[in-house]
Design a protein around this nucleic acid. Structure first.
Length: 263
DNA sequence: ATGGTGGAAGATCCA
């Protein structure tokens, strides 16, 4: 089974690229972030025509996440628990049946958190604390769980072109990295790191300043796996070819293959 | 010092 995550930076601007990628990459489950659309304006028909079930958690203008799946959803949960006043659409969980057992897949869009002097950084850290609580609870189920999305976290210096330049940024602040490690240390495996130590494996290149041709990127899109998923990880891949397409997203897809039939 | 680029929306905000 192939599971992918992609911050598409606007579904209206990216629908042609998305359809092309779905045909080419052919994921069984695709987690999308920054759909920047309300649910009833999401172009579900074109995607359903390719054989996908579509579940969205959108909002007007910003944020918004979705899961596309060739497998039927047994259950869908929208929103990260822990703050009833949080209006931002950044989290959706789908539950599927794979290999005769439950498979949980989350599409998440973790807050950027800049500027760090603002409420936005506090919101990022609070959101990460809520995510940690949620993950701790889910891990008790001892099921295959894939936490996929744009984490807005550069885990290690080798995950960016210029660590000194990122010093102090919310994506690389010690508080942010500590919160990410706390999450990982619950027992989640970083898929890309599990299959490769290669540096300069980036998932995002800014539109500005020729970042893409200069390969000035960062690795901030991650698929974090519970032990029951990580045990069956076969491969992980950054599909960077999409960054060279016309009208690209500034992020590229990251995908994994796991074999849950042998679970 | 400024603006750099792009999306959504339709003035700015967000990244």
């Amino acid at each position: 089974m192939k599971i992918a995550t992609w911050n598409i930076n606007g579904i209206k601007a990216r629908i042609d690229n998305l359809l092309h990628w779905l045909k080419e990459s052919d994921p069984d489950i695709a987690c999308l972030q920054e759909i920047k659309s309300v649910d009833d304006q999401f172009p579900r028909l074109e995607i359903e025509a390719l054989g996908y079930h579509v579940e969205t958690h959108g909002q007007k203008g910003f944020n918004g996440v979705a899961i596309l799946s060739k497998h039927r959803f047994d259950e869908v949960n929208r929103g990260l628990p822990g703050d009833d006043g949080d209006e931002q659409a950044r989290f959706i969980e789908g539950v599927f049946t794979a290999g005769g057992r439950a498979l949980r897949v989350v599409s998440l869009y973790l807050p950027n958190g800049n500027p760090v002097e603002s409420e936005k950084f506090l919101y990022k850290l609070a959101w990460m604390s809520r995510l940690e609580s949620w993950a701790a609870e889910r891990l008790e189920l001892e099921e295959p769980l894939v936490l996929a999305g744009d984490y807005n976290i550069i885990p290690q210096p080798e995950d960016c072109h210029d660590p000194a330049g990122w010093q102090g940024d919310a994506l690389f602040r010690p508080e942010s990295l500590t919160a990410f490690r706390r999450l990982a240390n619950l027992g989640l495996t970083d898929s890309i790191r599990a299959v490769s130590d290669a540096p300069q494996s980036y998932t995002f290149w800014d539109y500005q300043g020729g970042a893409w041709p200069k390969n000035h990127g960062i690795r901030i899109d991650h698929l974090m796996l519970s032990p029951e998923a990580a045990d069956h990880l076969e491969s992980a891949e950054i599909e960077k070819y999409t960054r060279a397409w016309e009208k690209p997203s500034d992020h590229v897809p990251v995908s994994i293959r796991i074999n849950l039939d042998t679970a």
